[in-house]
């Protein structure tokens, strides 16, 4: 028997319909409708239903990363500390890059903590689809969970590094200014939004174009140089500064430094960066939702 369109409530065309169970007590409460239209819409309720998978993927990545490592979690702080040391010697002491009213090591470590979270998240999110190809092809789940769980994985490292940063600041006598501690969530959100957006976008094109994998490290490195991580924005003329703000990491890094120096960056800089990060998030999300339906066919 063919189904006529009368058999369906029009509302059931997308995802799930919870309304059926009252009429048919013996039937389970969930109804899944599969049609060409069903796909391509990311359903928030669906993501929440699969939230455990979100943790599980992060948990897996963290577990796997530290299996068979000698130093284990120490690796997390090893990288920013060594980078800070090298940057301080070469950029701070030899090249004499100015660092405002804070010492160069604290200046560059603040930048690196946020930058590393950004670059790790983007890299892992971008590769998440390809790396989990076998799962995508064999099991259904909202695919957006994979790149987003990369952000959660990186968040653990970020928290450890952030504590290290605060310890370092306090130890060197730069007590964080509690009045402007609101800059911390600002920096964090801008970092999360922009890495999520960029990660989603790259994850999606990585499925189709394998070049992404090769371009990515190069791309991230270029981004580092156009972000004020090893230099302050103040070395640029005010008219150029605002262009830099379109790179949301400019706002994130400068704002984070404000916590220790006591002076928040220009309000305009923060607004432009915030707006830019939201735009990146939105673009990445839309592009991902438009393309995810065919991932299993082409990955």
């Amino acid at each position: 028997m063919f189904l006529s369109s009368l058999d369906f409530k029009s509302g059931a065309d997308f995802g799930y319909n919870y309304g059926i169970s009252a009429k048919h007590m013996s039937l389970p409460s969930r109804e899944i409708v599969i049609s060409p239209k069903t796909f391509g819409v990311i359903d928030l309720a669906e993501i929440i239903r699969f939230r455990e998978l979100f943790y599980i993927f992060s948990w897996r990545d963290i577990k796997v990363r530290y299996k068979q490592t000698l130093l284990g979690v120490i690796w997390v702080i090893f990288q920013p500390l060594v980078t800070t040391l090298i940057f301080t010697v070469f950029f701070g002491n030899l090249a004499k890059i100015p660092s405002g009213d804070m010492p160069y090591p604290l200046f560059v470590l603040t930048g690196l903590v946020f930058w590393n979270y950004f670059s790790n998240s983007v890299t892992h999110a971008a590769n998440s689809m390809v790396e989990n190809e076998s799962i995508i092809k064999k099991v259904y789940f909202p695919k957006i969970i994979l790149p987003l769980s990369s952000l959660l994985t990186g968040f653990i490292d970020f928290l450890i590094n952030l504590s290290l940063l605060f310890l370092f600041a306090i130890a060197t006598g730069h007590i964080p200014n509690l009045k402007i501690l609101y800059l911390l969530p600002f920096s964090l959100l801008v970092t999360v939004f922009s890495s999520a957006g960029l990660g989603l976008f790259l994850a999606s094109i990585n499925v189709k174009y394998r070049d992404v994998r090769y371009i990515l490290p190069f791309f991230i490195q270029i981004l580092l140089f156009i972000s004020p991580v090893i230099y302050p924005l103040s070395i640029l003329s005010p008219s150029h500064k605002i262009y830099m703000a379109f790179n949301p990491m400019s706002g994130a890094v400068e704002a984070a430094r404000g916590i220790f120096s006591g002076t928040p960056p220009d309000f305009s800089l923060m607004i432009v960066s915030a707006f830019s990060s939201l735009l990146i998030l939105f673009t990445g999300f839309i592009y991902f939702s438009k393309t995810e339906r065919f991932f299993a066919d082409i990955v």
Partner: peptide
Amino acid sequence: ITPPTEGKAVLR
């Protein structure tokens, strides 16, 4: 896992 091109299925 992959969308149909045409048609419909309902799983209860």
